[in-house]
């Protein structure tokens, strides 16, 4: 077992927290005289994922596969083109603005870039107070006291809450971003590559902080990363994305030990090993990721798949469960 999860009390009843149903997000490519959409970027094309209460889902995939778009659609930064997002079984789009707003408190996000994710002209205490300002529930909360509490929670000097973000290092800023995300005591924290823009030492500190918070607080994670080691350290389930679709998902042990989809195999073979007698074969994929404007027909991976068959270019593979929640979308399995 990995350190983050081994010390956490086993949650017996796995209640579903957040679920996306066939979620699609297309971005228009505008052109011509009137800036009409001439094509669509299929950033998310039918993504269905599920995060249970107290669970931690890692979303992996190469650049441009739609990981960050998924986070932005779930947090309401982008509107979904179609599909649904259920939070505790209720669609977040269904009941109008008030329901949507209460979800904004329960689902928070931490961004990759700690330099621009904090408004440079606001004091840290104002930044930390902002999520509380948006809800009547927190009216009357003492700003300075709350700021101190949050700073302490993420291991920063509470005396510095009156300073501006530029007075902190990258790792410290990422902690401030995490503190801000935790201000409303959310049920789900979406971490969009929280460690890829900070230096190695801070990376370790941020990861340990995230692991600690996961253990001590009643919060679920959705961790987006292209660093598989990070996902392995924090997460208990994993979803592998390729060109806007989930190609494989399941418990992290199952997926890592027995990857079913050829893309997952190739992705995992790219993890560097420090063992000198590692005999694992590197699977090197040919070519580039196809354009999301015009994704390949059939299985999206067939243009680069080392095991592709002729029918792969015609049949769209369904995500099928192969036991213990381990599912993959490939017709060859």
């Amino acid at each position: 077992m990995h350190p983050a999860t081994s010390q956490r009390k086993a949650v017996m009843i796995m209640a579903e927290l957040l679920k996306t149903v066939n979620l699609k997000k297309y971005f228009p490519v505008r052109g011509g005289l009137f800036q009409r959409p001439v094509a669509w970027v299929h950033a998310l094309d039918g993504v269905s994922i599920q995060i249970d209460e107290g669970e931690s889902l890692g979303v992996v995939g190469e650049s441009g596969c739609g990981k960050s778009t998924l986070a932005r659609v779930i947090t309401g930064i982008y509107d979904a083109t179609s599909g649904d997002i259920l939070f505790k079984g209720k669609s977040i789009f269904s009941k109008g603005a008030t329901h949507y707003k209460s979800i904004r408190e329960d689902v928070q996000i931490v961004f990759q870039d700690p330099y621009w994710s904090l408004n440079p002209r606001l004091r840290v205490m104002d930044i930390l107070y902002e999520p509380l300002e948006n809800s009547k529930k927190y009216r009357g909360v003492n700003k300075a006291a709350k700021a101190r509490e949050l700073m302490e929670l993420v291991g920063l000097d509470p005396e510095k809450a009156g300073e501006y973000p530029h007075e902190f290092s990258g790792g410290q800023r990422q902690r401030i971003a995490i503190a801000r995300a935790l201000a409303t005591d959310p049920k789900l924290l979406i971490l969009d590559e929280p460690t890829s823009a900070v230096d190695t030492l801070s990376q370790a500190q941020v990861l340990n902080l995230l692991a600690d918070l996961y253990r001590t607080r009643n919060v679920s994670y959705m961790l987006i990363s292209h660093d598989l080691a990070v996902v392995q350290y924090i997460c208990r389930t994993i979803a592998v994305m390729y060109l806007g679709q989930v190609v494989e998902s399941g418990r992290i042990e199952d997926v890592f030990e027995n990857p079913l989809h050829p893309y997952t195999m190739a992705l995992f073979s790219a993890i560097p090993s420090i063992s000198p007698d590692n005999t694992r074969e590197r699977i090197i994929l040919e070519g580039n990721v196809p354009s999301a404007v015009n994704p390949p027909k059939g299985c999206r991976f067939h243009t680069r798949c080392p095991e592709a068959k002729p029918e792969c270019s015609n049949v769209v593979p369904e995500l099928k469960d192969y036991g213990n929640g381990h599912s993959a979308a490939c017709i060859r399995i």
Binding site: R72, T75, G76, I77, K101, R104, E105, V107, Q108, I109, F111, Q112, D113, W116, S117, L118, N119, E130, P131, E133, N134, S135, A177, R180
Partner: peptide
């Protein structure tokens, strides 16, 4: 396009 604006949106800031 800055993340702090996106963060504000995600927080439900008007």
């Amino acid at each position: 396009q800055r993340p702090f604006i996106e963060a504000a949106k995600a927080m439900g800031t008007s």
